[in-house]
Design a protein around this nucleic acid. Structure first.
Lengths: 220, 220
DNA sequence: TGTTGTATACGCGTATACGAGAATACAGTA
DNA sequence: TACTGTATTCTCGTATACGCGTATACAACA
């Protein structure tokens, strides 16, 4: 038991609601711009509006929904500009994390990461690829020694998750992405920080360009 | 009027409470580890617990307070490790922002930034130095073109604000800090990106070391 | 027909109320 | 005296209720 503060943490209704909503937004069930009526959600989940309010506020903090007093909550829509901003940040943050983590990364962790790649290849459920993709990336950064940096990276993964999933549902992109993942692993095994960072940047840059080219600009 | 979504935004009680609490935490009125009882705060502010709950959730998202279900909210305490993490992130984020912003930064903005420095020198109220310090830094990054990056930087400023204020209340540190600020401005005027980034990193690094050396580790 | 004023309804923010869980204090026993 | 079990209290999470602002639709007038 490492952290007493985190032990036996009761799961509040609000957190569970937030999880469900986050997933529904990520997998596209709730499209960008969709109005999130507190009454509707309360009725649908079978709880009162209060925990739903808490959940919405949490999601707002994550940048996934936007709340306007008297106007309510909407699924945040990202235009091309925001997607570019997020990917630019991911490049910055993840490259740094990789630089910090790689020298301290055990071979075991690399094996684990490679296992995740195999699981992605074997996974038939499209909805899970996004989550596995995140696990793979975070596994590589786990030894970076900066917990806050990891949290930021995870938050940006979540923010872009639904768009990345659209990418991943394209089989062409997915095989290319997997190839780049394996390049990345290979560079990591050689402990070639420079090359690994270069591959990572290329990987993220291509993802961003593919998304931007797909013209996913949406107005909320 | 650029953004309709932000216009005529009504200020909710929760937001005002959050602002007051944030300032109280930043200026030290509420020390790290202080329990934030919803009932107490509600009585003190003269509102019910609901907007206080919302405010606390917002502050939790900013990393200023931590909430545990059934145990309540506490002012988040930072140990030396977390301070180092935050300053490491600030170096990464602000250096990038400066790199992006400097080529596009107008002389007018530099003049404005320099005005802020003068105001810092002239400001007798210690409590305002932290805010002015933030204004100065953000003025330099304003042309970076990545709104999300700026938000992240501001968030990390807020998170570290109360510790930075302790630094600034030390007159020795403050004059050295101002000297570095002026070095930074000078490098910016020469449009010397490399030198400006180097000065910025030195500036942040010294701040972090001074804080760490002060041994501000606190347990929450 | 187009515009403006008003009424009604919808949804959010806030207040009050209740129940559950945890912490603490006290008493009883070894 | 030390430890354990129980009861009480404190605080939070959730439910319900109310008031207000905003939006929308319909009607009246230009």
């Amino acid at each position: 038991m490492r952290n007493f503060a985190e032990m036996r943490r009761p799961l509040t209704v609000a957190e569970q609601v937030a999880d469900v909503l986050r997933e529904a937004i990520a997998d596209g069930s709730l499209a960008a711009g969709t109005a999130l009526r507190q009454d509707d959600l309360a009725a649908r989940f079978g709880f009162s509006r209060m925990p739903i309010r808490d959940a919405l506020r949490q999601l707002e903090a994550e940048g996934i929904v936007s709340i306007h007093p008297t106007k309510g909550a909407h699924v945040a829509g990202m235009d091309t500009t925001e997607i570019r901003e997020i990917f630019a940040l991911r490049e910055l943050l993840e490259a740094e994390a990789l630089r910090l983590s790689l020298p301290a990364l055990s071979d075991d962790r690399l094996d684990e990461a490679e296992d995740v790649l195999a699981r992605i290849d074997a996974e038939p459920d499209v909805g899970r690829w996004g989550a596995l993709n995140r696990v793979f990336h975070l596994a590589l950064y786990g030894a970076c020694g900066n917990q806050r940096l990891l949290s930021l990276i995870e938050a940006h993964h979540n923010a872009a998750d639904r768009y990345v999933r659209i990418l991943l549902s394209n089989l062409n992109y997915r095989s290319r992405s997997q190839a780049e993942h394996r390049e990345l692993i290979a560079a990591c095994r050689r402990r070639d920080v420079k090359e690994a960072v270069a591959v990572l940047k290329k990987h993220l840059g291509e993802g961003m360009e593919t998304l931007a080219a797909a013209g996913m600009a949406k107005k909320s």
